[in-house]
Each structure stands twice: as C-alpha cells, then as structure tokens.
Write a protein that binds this DNA or RNA. Structure first.
Lengths: 257, 257
DNA sequence: CCCGCTGGTTCCCCACGCGGGAACAGGTTT
DNA sequence: AAACCTGTTCCCGCGTGGGGAACCAGCGGG
C-alpha cells in the first residue's frame, strides 16, 4: 500500500509487521497511547487504533484508561516457550549451581537467527552485573557462548550464519572477519571449550562449553567474570573444568525432546 | 474475505488474528509444520506460509528444518512485561515468604480482561499442586483473588466486568449469579479479605487480601490449600492475617509506577 | 464559560495487499 | 517411476486494511 519499492524476498505480511511494531513499542516504553504510537511508528491514528483494538480483543494488550500496555498473557507464553526447550529444569539447576560454586555469572544460551539468546542466567556472590538477561540476544561472534555453539553446528549452517553476519567491533579484541572466526572455531573444536577474552565487553572474560545431545548441539553454558579473577591460568584450567562439568551434567539429564 | 456474516464490533484486523492464531497453535503444540497448521487452523498452506515467514523475519518464530516453533525472544518480552508491573521484586519476595511461612501455595494476581491473571506463584512445603501457573487466567468470580480484586475496583468497572461475565459452575459452591456476586463483594468490602470455599476446585480453599496504592487496586495476594488444613477457624482468623500482612508489606514497598 | 487544545474513536473510500488455489520442487516410500 | 509427502512459489481477484477527516470527550486557561 505504501511500499511498492520494497519487493520480493518472499511474501511478508504488512499488517502483522505493524502489529508487532506496536507490541515492540509498547514493550520498550511501558505502555502508550494511540497518538503517541501513531507518531512514533508513523502511521495514522486510525490504523494504530484498529490494531490496538485487535490486540486487545486477542488479550495480548490491555487498556487502562487512555493507555495501552502489554498483558500478562505474555508471561504464560514465556512459560510454554521455556518448557519446550530440552529439559529446562536441569539447565536451571546446573546453571544456578555453577554460579554458586564459582561466585560468578553463569548462563545458558542457544542459537536463534544467527545470534545467541540467553535462556537462563544466574549470578553468584561476586558477580559483576552485565546488561544481558534472559531472552536477550548477543552477537554470536563476540561471545564465548556464541562461538562455542557455532563451532558445533552443522558446517552448512555455520557458513549460512557467518555469511549473514555483519561484524562490528565491540572492543579492540572483537573478532571482525570471517577468517578469524573460522580459525577460532577450529581452535574451539580442538580444545572443546570457547573463550571470550574481552571481545564483547572490555574487562570481561568468559568461558563456555557446549551441550550436545545425539551429536546435535543444543546450546552452551558459560561463566563470565572480570579479567582480574579470570587470569590466564584459570581461564585454561580450572574454569573450563567447571563449565564442561556443568555441560556434561545437563547433557546426561536432558532427555532430548 | 471469508467472514461477511461477522460485523461491526469495531474494526479488527484479520491478518493479525491469523498471525496470533498461528502463534497460539505453535505455543500449545511445541512447534509444527506448515501443512499441519494449515489443516488445524483451516487456512491455505500459502497463507500460513507467508505468515510464518513474516513471523520468522520478525524473529518471533524460528525454523528448525521443517518445523517452526516460537523463539526465545518471547522470554525477553516477558521480562519487560513483568518489570512494568508495580514493583515486581517486592511481590516476588513477599509471595515467596508467604508460601514459606504457611507451607501452602501463595500467589499474586491482577485483573485483566475481566479475569484474574497470575503474576507470581510460590509453593510451600506441603503445597498441593494446582494447575494454575504464572500468566494463566482464571475466572474472576470463582477465585478468592478475583473476587477480592473485583471488590476494590471502581464501581463502573465492576458492573462492566460482571455484565460481561458468563458464570459457569466449576463446583457446587461456585457463584453463578450476578446478585450473589454483588453480595459477596459487599461481604469482602466489609471484612477486608476474600475467601474461596471450594468454588473453583473441589477441596480447595483460598484466602486473599487486596494490594492497593493510592486507593487504586493493584492486585491481590492469596494462599490456597486443602480444606483439611484450611479449617473454618483458621480461614477466618490466622490465614487472613497472613495474607493481609503480606499485602501490606507489598503496598508499602510498592512505589506506584 | 467558552474556546482551543489534548487525546481517543468513528466513518468512509479506494487501491492494493492478502488469502486461496494450483502448480512446483524436493525428498521419501512403495 | 509413480504416488505421496512435505515446504515453497506464482498468480489472480476481491475485500480489507490504511489513511484522512470528521467527531467526541475532557481539560485548562484566557
């Protein structure tokens, strides 16, 4: 209707995109009104209005006076989504234990859309807080989790992901070329665990181990901490042991779904 | 296109409804293929296909081989949604404490779309498991939480909700008429807490107390347990004290957002 | 008190996007 | 190799969704 210049990467439905852009806007600001959304998303008020009405009807959105916000129904969806992943309970348990033992941040993540998505996160005693949290996404090439998962993906999927990735440097250590990434993958494949040495956040190091089931990679576990505690020795000795042990436990207890 | 018989309760967007029916289907079954969805939802494969493609593009859905399933991005949304509610942390803390003290199930719920939606749930030691969980919805007239929240809503909203409700009897104790419900509301208003005496699930009793902020009702806290432990005395003495105390703490620590 | 402003809601029209059917492409089974 | 599965693509026609403007309701200030 408005976008003839856009064309043929397979059909995509405009109204649905609008609907989700509304949801997205409602999510990032905590609720909003019709006019505000109309301005922000550059659509007529009537358009926004009928979308909001639809979403309200579907109970994904609630109206409180003149403000619309997302409904708690999302929480229910999240529960389901979590349950459909391998054995979430085991993952939660082991990640928590790992954070506890080490005192650092422990996380579990999987690959989606060529990025890492965190499924669970636990903070130990001395954990430095990072921005990332459950459901958040991070670049696959700049995280121990991502690179580790990548390594154990089927080769064609690796290529697919890598070729679709734009490398942006988060720190001076960030991997910024496919070649280096492929090298890194090889290294990880050999030694069995992945390392992020301040590649995503300055001062932060991470170690990650893969979780596999039937030769298929499910995700990876990691611990993250400040360079000061993640010394050169620990990072190649003690810490890999921790994460691989956790990964193994998860593997064993995960009845592949 | 297919539904001329349907008409004018305000405009509602068909494509969006389809998109969400797909999401819903993906949620309840853990992923599905195009054909399966097409049959189930009674749409052509091509329709489903372009919707799935759109959702995939938007990263709400991931394709794994020939199966589509919801992405973990939902988890991120859920986090946001939770945070936008009053002070979730306090609620969590108090509900957990309540479950701990009493050994039973403690819950916090709010009203949405004329129903109760659970925001948090904690199980104590001896807790009997109920089906309900976070994000789930229950009828407002058949739960202690619901009736309690209802009581403190503005009168016009009460009428609105009540007149829109269909009463279905879950047990022989279920309130099934607006009149009785209004009576119950009055009772709750007087004594300050609500009771569900096997009105939703046989054998299960609940006690709930309102959480208000600036005279506006935010939600309610409840504990649920078997009739055997929730005796006639306790249910009007000890248990109300527990829940009102928890409710008060939440009230005090909730900086209204 | 009224008038201008805010915001949400409704109405209607028109073009174009979307849903559907059918044809296509791959893979697996018989 | 033919019959069947999938998922995917193509194309067409119609009804629907997006936009603009008109319409309200509430608010505040001149």
């Amino acid at each position: 209707m408005t976008q003839p210049p856009e064309s043929r990467p397979g059909r995509t439905i405009r109204s649905v995109e609008i609907a989700f852009s509304i949801i997205d806007a409602l999510e990032r600001r905590d609720g909003a009104g019709v006019t505000e959304l109309a301005d922000r998303l550059d659509h007529s008020k009537s358009t926004i209005h009928s979308h909001l009405r639809t979403l309200e009807e579907l109970e994904y959105v609630v109206r409180k006076g003149d403000e619309y916000r997302l409904s708690l129904q999302i929480l229910g969806m999240a529960e389901h989504v979590r349950d459909q992943v391998g054995n979430y309970d085991v993952i939660e348990e082991e990640v928590d234990a790992l954070a506890d033992e080490t005192g650092e941040i422990a996380q579990f993540g999987i690959e989606e859309h060529g990025q890492v998505t965190y499924l669970h996160k636990a903070s130990g005693e001395q954990a430095v807080e990072t921005a990332s949290s459950v459901g958040a996404q991070q670049p696959i090439y700049a995280t121990a989790l991502g690179k580790t998962i990548l390594t154990f993906l089927p080769p064609e999927r690796i290529d697919e992901i890598v070729s679709a990735t734009e490398f942006v440097a988060h720190t001076s250590h960030t991997i910024t070329s496919p070649e280096k990434l492929y090298d890194e993958i090889e290294t990880i494949a050999e030694r069995g665990y992945g390392i992020d040495d301040e590649e995503n956040i300055a001062g932060l190091r991470c170690v990650a181990a893969p979780v596999k089931s039937e030769s298929e990679i499910l995700g990876a576990v990691s611990i993250s901490g400040p360079k000061s505690r993640f010394t050169d020795d620990r990072i190649h000795d003690e810490l890999p042991e921790f994460v691989t042990r956790a990964a193994n436990v998860i593997e064993l207890n995960t009845k592949f779904s």
